[in-house]
Design a protein around this nucleic acid. Sequence first.
RNA 1: CGGGGCGUGGCGCAGCCUGGUUAGCGCGCUUGGUUCGGGACCAAGAGGUCGGGGGUUCAAAUCCCCCCGCCCCGACCA
Length: 568
Amino acid sequence: MRFSRLFAPTKKESPADAEIPSHKLLIRGGFIRKVASGLYDILPLGTKVILKIEKVVREEMNRAGAQEVILPIMHPSELWLESGRWNVYGKEMIKFKDRHERDYALGPTAEEVITDLVRREVKSYKELPLNLYQIGRKFRDEIRPRFGLMRAREFIMKDAYSFHATDEDAEREYWNMYETYCRIFKRLGLEFKAVLADTGEIGGSFSHEFMVLADTGEGKLVYCKECGYSASTEKASQLRPALPESREKEFKEIEEVYTPGVKRIEEVSEFLGIPKENIAKLLIYIADGKPLALLIRGDREVEETKLKSVLKVKELRLATQEEIEELTGQPKGFLSPLGLKVPLYADYSLIPMVNFVVGGGKKDYHLKNANWGRDFQVKEFVDVSEFTGGEACPECGAPLEFKRGIEVGHIFKLGTKYSEAMGATFVDEEGVERPMVMGCYGIGITRVMAAAVEQRYDENGIIWPSEIAPFEVIVIPTNVKKEEIRALSEEIYGKLKEEGIDTLIDDRNARPGFKFKDADLIGIPIQVIVGKGAPGGIVEVKVRRSGERFEVRASELLGKVKELLKEV
RNA sequence: CGGGGCGUGGCGCAGCCUGGUUAGCGCGCUUGGUUCGGGACCAAGAGGUCGGGGGUUCAAAUCCCCCCGCCCCGACCA
């Protein structure tokens, strides 16, 4: 490709509405342009990157035994009504009617459509297992699209669905996909972690998220350096703390203290001179319409995904001020676990606590030296606090590390949730009709592009891994008006292309500094600079990632480039 | 959905508070010339319904009302 003909409108300045590096650089580099909130044009450079990511994904999925299909983007409502998700997925789905007033949605995911296909066509255990995937557009009407491609309303996803005769076989395929995903992300040149995850809206029995490590990631994870345990903070579990043996002996007499206007944990801590670790806060939740109270150590936060999962509820929210007063008869800000009429749960963090502070149950009062078991009873101790790093590993006890990441892949063992709801059954060896066991496996292709940038950039621009770089090599003649330079550049360009190396030549009549800036910005891994050394057949090679540069004879260039491409 | 901010040539911004010539600046773009190893310089040019609508006024980018779009935070902390 010739830069003079390439549609890659690069910019010196970042757009005003971009916040994170990947968004800024993809726009500055001419990879993408915004059309509207959460909607993007992907320009030639971006498209090349996307196609290269897809190529890796295709190769590895095919290798793993999956087969590619193309399913409709437009989904009839009947299928979603059958699975029960038409309303559950609700606001996230872009819904519309056709000319006959029939309801449709733009697919946010394709369990329904694929299950429908398979139930119609597969009848026998002999046709199983089956793993089908597609790479296509998905639509999710996000509450708040943000960060460019990171959370867009329309995006490209690889989604695979597998169907099995037995649970064991579904599990085997799950781990097959796990391995495949590891290979894919490794080939893409990304630093990632596979973490235990919550199954969320999709449902199913267990799942892993694949996170690309980056500080700007919306996902949070913890992992153990010692034993390799890793989990999303929405899933990470902790050991139940041991109960101190002589706990009762330490109990002091409960005491009411006057704390006018002191409500928040920080204020209580400061006012009473008691650390937050020895204060318990009480929260009132409404879970699937029923109220409950939760006590948690003052310095800890509730991980609501974990709470939902423990309670096995779909909807969870904090009670409103009015509800709190109605349910407890106590004023907000001074809630006490004593004499509560709603079921009282407590986080594990409460277990070792003794003589702690709680709300006084009336305005402007708190209680000191409260103790569970003596002053009030806990229905159940649950593990629902949010991890922030430093907690003990549930496998080996070593302190966990905390990282942020971008979720680029997610695999689920679904079980029979969809096959039962939609009647996807087969006849087994004994002639018994049974629901298929399913799994599903997604990779956010457009998000991978953003995540790759988020992980690899510097002040000059993007640093693509060679496997997904829009071009592997850029040849930069410093001055196209000088014949030796122009001719040698063209010769090198021709030769690299002949060797199957994806090469761009910057044949624009521009000053060298200008070209260097563009080459760095768009992040091509290897730059071949043809300048002063041209008459003697010497060119300069610059490695984008390391900044390393060296001179090489034009005749030896090819071998050197091939070698470097393997490393970067 | 709640809160905050923004909307002025393609891009980034100033002007608005305190209304008043012809709406500026940098980048980019066009033409000519000089340059040519880290986003050159000189000269001449093109390009604007000041997001949209309504109102106040002799006069509105500027003040008031409504609407639209975009961005950020939140939609948990009792």
